[in-house]
Nucleic acid binder design. Structure first.
Lengths: 252, 252
DNA sequence: GACCCCTTTATGTCCAGACATATTCGGAAT
DNA sequence: ATTCCGAATATGTCTGGACATAAAGGGGTC
């Protein structure tokens, strides 16, 4: 293993890593129809040549697209386009329990309000006593892009600080880390809704547009509600993606 | 780069890849409390030593746990446990899986078209050769109430008759009963959409209203697509309701 | 105790290589 | 035209290495 090694082609300062750039190029090509569903993407070796990158970097780029459900990869068969990306679409796995405890990919929660639960806020909606809860409101998004709006109630006796929430991968995770309160049951409801003028304004979308409405209630082992959330994602910005596989019992 | 390379430590025949084995060991350790939320996992270098694997294999194992939301990784900070593995990782996929194979509750499928896949139908949307597929269109509803509209592609070589479909609890069930083709993997995507005038008319809903849009692709064991469906449910008529419970995994 | 700064560190990103293997495909035979 | 088989192929898995960088931590100063 004594061949000389090409110096790494690092991205310019402030730019995304090369593998993300290549992933974005491919994502855009799928989105604009250059590659259609069923088409083969350039293979790993071809991507190396096209973008002057290593096979590792090419595979990392393709791994991103695989995770987003845009392509399917099988050995020898190659990389096949399986879906078109919505423009700037974020996808959240909707598989199992853990997926409920995570933010979608890189869509972070930007807190815009965290404090006393207003009498006419989410607590009222859920018929809860506001004085027992903290309300949190925030945007979900990445960078300057807003994917959705979230509103949550956190029971006062297990309300982390805003900093703790910022540093965690989810609000439920922050609660568990700080107070040891663990979600034992999560009830979820996904439905379609029409954006009200207020929500539309907050989300920078036209009023009357369609949106995904997700409500979740998290309960601990004795069944006590400790976290309730609702999120609104305008159509075109967000989708739940799930992949179920029939389980093999031959594993391990 | 002229040091000799250790031969790869491949898993024994029939066993999962090493990176999956290591991931499972760590997952179990998190699950049984060896590592608690907030704890540091062994770093990459330590995992290499502990399991006699390369850093790449260690990183792949940790990447799985990251994807499952069990750990959070940041440079220099290390790998921190962010959640305990619920059954969600294994979240009774058969239960969830089977749900995909059934109609929602009592909402039956009323077939309004079953035959040749039109050149401009769903096959075109999925970039499939229409001549290899049958297209089925129908209403989902109960009694006189229409809940949603469904459109499906069934691969010709395993297309049941309309009567067989009527008599089964699902199209996938009819396919399995008649041809023995079993869904091994189902990819699902749930998003919000706005009703086009045509869809609105078919559904008796105002054009421009919000709707839930669900797309599913069913693949058999070798990964071949044999059934693709899409359904549209106007807002207010349909919601996905799910309840996840953390399963007691004290047995293993 | 708070703050600052520098070193250390553990992950992130990128490079190269090799072997395994599932899958595709082309050619031969029927 | 169909079937079979073997070679080729493109991804999967695993090894090694190097540099970048964000973050932790320790020590010194105030």
């Amino acid at each position: 293993m004594n061949t000389s090694k090409r110096p790494a082609t690092r991205p310019a300062a402030g730019q995304a890593p090369r593998y993300r750039q290549v992933a974005q190029i491919l994502r855009a090509a799928i989105g604009n129809g250059t590659y259609k569903v069923g088409d083969l993407l350039p293979g790993e070796i071809e991507l190396c040549a096209l973008h002057d990158i290593s096979r590792h970097t090419a595979r990392d780029a393709l791994r991103l697209l695989t995770q987003e459900g845009l392509v399917v990869r099988r050995r020898r068969a190659g990389t096949v386009v399986s879906a078109r990306p919505g423009p700037a679409m974020f996808v959240q796995p909707l598989g199992g329990f853990q997926d409920l405890l995570q933010y979608a990919g890189e869509a972070r929660l930007k807190i815009i309000y965290y404090g006393v639960a207003p009498a006419d806020g989410l607590a009222a909606t859920l018929n809860l006593a506001p004085e027992d809860w903290r309300e949190l409101r925030g945007y979900r998004g990445s960078g300057a892009q807003t994917v959705g709006l979230a509103r949550m109630l956190i029971r006062k006796d297990c309300a982390p600080t805003a900093t703790e929430i910022d540093n965690a991968s989810s609000v439920a995770g922050a609660i568990e880390a700080r107070f040891g309160v663990v979600a034992d049951r999560v009830d979820q409801r996904i439905s379609a809704m029409t954006l009200t003028p207020l929500l539309a304004q907050l989300l920078g979308a036209p009023a009357g547009d369609a949106a995904l409405h997700t409500q979740r209630q998290y309960r601990d082992a004795p069944g006590r509600l400790f976290l309730a959330t609702e999120t609104v994602h305008p159509a075109g910005r967000f989708a739940y993606v799930t992949s179920y596989t029939r389980e093999r019992t031959d594993v391990e």
